[in-house]
Structures are given as structure tokens and as C-alpha cells.
Amino acid sequence: MSTAAGPPVLVDVDGEAAVTTIRLNRPENRNALTVELKVALRDALEAVADDPSVRAVVLASSGKAFCVGQDLREHAEALRSGEDGAIGADALSTVPEHYNRIAAALGTMRKPVVAAINGTAVGAGLGFALACDLRVAAPGVKFATAFAGIGFGGDSGLSGTLAHCVGASRATELLMLGEPFTAEEARDWGIVKEIADDPDEAALALARRLANGPTLAFAEIKAAVAMGTVSSLREVLDHEASAQARLGATEDHRGAVDAFLAKQQPVFRGR
């Protein structure tokens, strides 16, 4: 893992495994989110989402923290940048321009995304982790929502993703009180899939496993689960029927059925 100064985001392409790792790279500032970092992360995620050669993605970080959320020094300067005491125009535009697009890219790209959480994840850092499909964390990692402590509600999709993970009651508690919780608690609550001494390696192994799997089916699963948390049973049933019709016409499905009948391992190619 690189901790040297460099680009705000590092992109590592493993073409053989069809896995791309996107790494936040401001270790000296615990990966606090500046405009430069947010733009680089947004653009990298949107590019990899559109890249058909990538079948799975890892979101990781350099240094000892995953991401401590917004860089408040930069935010304070933006707040003061307006005229006659008004809030600066750029202070809150970062939510639709950066946070929303980053969370949407993670949560809606039609390929699995695994978060490798090596250290503290708070605020938008927690939001980004929860926008991923699966999470691996190092032992003892601390999580917190942090927004209420600075008079904010929540962004990066956290108000929804946290409630979907732990239920509305606990999500409200965590958002209002801001009390930290550990990786072990997160695992017990279903937020974290696995605790690993080397979360980067564990997340990469999981991403490689997913990349070898039925990625078209994973995309439909991802969309259906997201829909299922906010939709009626009838809507979910209709969506599932449409998804199964799409998947039934794929080479992946037909080949997997033939492999099953022949007692062989299927090979998925994403078509």
C-alpha cells in the first residue's frame, strides 16, 4: 500500500482478473475529502462503471484510515467565501456534484464493488463504504456517522443505506447520537461481511471471485435488492420477472444450465 504523496486517487487495473482497484490517496490527511479528491474519485468510478473489460471493483484507501469524510478546513473556507456573510456558492454544491454521483456510481454500476476498510470510516467515508455491495474491514476499525456533530443530517446515501443495513431505529440512533461502533459490531449487524488482518488482500480475493461469477446476474441482483427495500411486493415481482427474462436469454445462463447437467463447472463471460 502506497502512503507517499501523489495523485489523490490511484487506479490499479488487474486485466487478467478483470478487477480494478480504486484507492483514495491522501494518507497524510486520513483521506479527508477535498474537491480535488472527490472529483478524481467520481471520475474514476464513472469511468470504470462504463468499462466493459472490468467485471468487479475494489474501493480501498492508502494509509491508516479509510476515509474521515469531508475536509472541514476546505469546507470552512468555502462557507466563508460568499459576499456580505452569505454562504459561499461552492460550499453545498459538493453534495449533488460530488457526493451524490460518487454514491450513485458505487451503488448502481452493473458490476460488484467491494470496500476494503483498512481504518476509520466516518461521515461520507462510511457512506461510500455502505454504497458498495460488500465490505471487508480490519480488526478494531471504528465507524461513525459524524454528521449531526457539525449540524448536518447525512449525505452520500447514508440515510438510506444505513437504514437498509441495520434497520430504521438503529440508523436513527447512529445518525442522531453519532456514537462510534466497531468493525466487530458492524459484522454482527450485517454491515461487514468479513474481518481480515489484511482487508486489501481479502477484498481483492473476494472481487476476483465475483469477477469469475455471473456478473450479469449480479447486476440484476444488485438492482433488485435496491428496489426491494423501497418498493411493494408487486413491483418487486414484476421487476424480478423482467430480470429473469433478460438473464434467460444470455449465453451465461444457457451455458451454466448445460454445465450443471454435464456435472461441470460453468464459465461466465458476461454475455
Rank of each mutant, 00 (worst) to 15 (best):
A207W: 01
A17L: 03
S159C: 06
I22H: 05
C132N: 05
L158I: 09
C165N: 13
D258L: 12
R187H: 10
P7D: 15
D90A: 13
Q244N: 13
E194K: 14
L247Q: 13
L237Y: 13
L24C: 05
D14L: 12
A17C: 14
I195D: 00
L79P: 05
A205C: 06
G88T: 01
G160Y: 10
P139T: 07
K142S: 09
R208H: 07
E240S: 14
L10R: 15
F128W: 07
A91C: 10
V57D: 05
G123E: 02
G82W: 15
S156N: 10
A18C: 09
E97H: 13
C165P: 04
V225M: 15
I102K: 01
L247Y: 10
E16N: 09
A148N: 13
A138K: 12
G123Q: 06
R271E: 15
E235H: 04
G167A: 06
A217V: 06
M176E: 13
G228F: 02
I22M: 08
L216P: 06
R42F: 05
G248L: 02
K193S: 11
A121F: 05
A89K: 14
A256L: 04
D258H: 08
R110V: 15
K222I: 07
G248E: 00
L210Q: 03
R23S: 13
N100K: 06
L72C: 06
A163H: 07
A5K: 08
L162C: 02
A245V: 03
A186F: 01
D50I: 08
D71H: 12
E240L: 12
K38N: 12
V192Q: 00
L233H: 14
P214T: 09
L233M: 15
R254K: 15
A44V: 08
A65E: 01
S231N: 09
R110C: 15
A146F: 12
A186S: 07
F218A: 09
L261Q: 14
S53F: 05
A211Q: 00
A32S: 10
A124I: 10
A124N: 11
G88W: 08
V54S: 00
A47Q: 14
S53K: 11
L247A: 08
T120S: 09
P52W: 07
P266R: 14
V54G: 04
V141C: 00
D188G: 10
E83Y: 13
A76G: 06
E36N: 07
R26E: 04
P180D: 04
R209N: 07
Q265P: 09
A163Q: 09
T3G: 09
L204S: 11
A115L: 07
G88K: 04
R135K: 13
P266E: 02
L158Y: 08
Q264S: 15
C132G: 00
L10C: 12
S231T: 08
L37W: 03
P7Y: 09
I22E: 01
W189I: 03
N31F: 05
A241D: 14
G140Y: 01
A76H: 10
L174H: 08
S62Y: 01
P199H: 02
R246H: 06
